[in-house]
């Protein structure tokens, strides 16, 4: 019989406590969403899916969900194009202003989201595009670009430089080498960056609050507007749905793309 291992027990208790702490808000929201009563409360005093039905049939949420999908798809795809180009430039070429470009790209991590949103609101008012998807997409591109660029940059740095030399040695012009060797090897990074950008854009709130109008509001903004007027668990149900969908996407992405690689937790 093996002796009780205190060290291992402590280690796993600590890990479990940390995991619980990290997921606690999500757990509370998911539990509250099954509450049968009219008022948001925790812990729940029953089990019901009525608020889920309300959440998916509520017209404002339906429109906002559609808006969110359109904005997220456009913003993350645009960010992917710009981000990949910039990552290629920064990782493969030396030019004056390279450092400046890197700084500008990480600026959204320093500038608060609501400042970005406010800035685009003023800009949008000046250009007369405040009621359009365009202004939201523009704001979201700025917000998600650093993440896409970073993901693509990391995957580029992980490519053995000898592969591109080998391509050139075998007769591939720079364009051909990019198309046949670099791009295929960048794809997992691009896919991962695009996915992260989509999720970030879809769930972005503080900048979106400024740049969306009632017709163009995205899901987090619609949820905020809902909770200002109603106190029933619908908001918990829609939150729970968001959590589940995002989790599923991440699991699938990890399975097929190797998220660990994209997030640079491991190399090669």
């Amino acid at each position: 019989m093996s002796k009780f291992n205190w060290r291992s027990f402590l280690f796993w208790t600590l890990i479990a406590a940390l995991l619980l702490y990290m997921t606690l808000p999500a757990i509370v929201v998911i539990m509250a969403s099954f509450n049968p009563g009219e008022v948001l409360s925790f812990p729940p005093n029953g089990l019901s899916v009525r608020w889920y039905i309300k959440a998916v049939t509520y017209p404002d949420f339906q429109i906002a969900f559609k808006n969110g999908i359109i904005v997220a798809a456009l913003a993350s795809t645009l960010a992917l194009v710009f981000g990949s180009a910039v990552a290629l430039l920064v990782s493969r070429y030396y030019f004056t202003g390279r450092g400046l470009l890197e700084t500008i790209l990480s600026a959204p991590l320093i500038v608060p989201h609501f400042t970005t949103g406010f800035g685009f609101l003023l800009l949008g008012a000046h250009l007369g595009i405040t009621q359009t998807y365009l202004i939201i997409v523009m704001a979201h591109v700025v917000l998600v670009l650093p993440f896409v660029t970073r993901a693509v940059y990391v995957s580029l740095q992980n490519i053995d430089p000898n592969l591109e030399r080998a391509a050139a040695n075998l007769g591939a012009s720079p364009i051909k080498s990019l198309w046949r060797v670099t791009l295929p090897l960048m794809l997992p990074g691009m896919a991962g960056g695009w996915l992260v950008a989509t999720i970030l854009s879809f769930t972005e709130f503080s900048a979106s609050l400024y740049v969306t109008a009632s017709r163009t509001q995205t899901l987090p903004v619609a949820m905020y507007n809902y909770i200002r007027e109603y106190t029933d668990p619908t908001i918990a149900a829609i939150s729970a749905l968001l959590i589940v969908i995002t989790t599923l996407i991440m699991i699938v992405a990890n399975r097929f793309l190797g998220l660990r690689k994209i997030l640079a937790i491991e190399s090669h």
Binding site: R165, N169, S173
Partner: peptide, 29 residues
């Protein structure tokens, strides 16, 4: 430029294209 020089190089770490099979690697040039 390197791609016009018609030299065949074998690298220390081989530098085979990982996303291609043997045939496509050898066919590249």
């Amino acid at each position: 430029p390197p791609y016009k020089r018609d030299t065949g190089m074998v690298f220390q770490n081989y530098a085979l294209f990982p996303h291609m099979n043997v045939r496509d690697n050898v066919a590249f040039g």
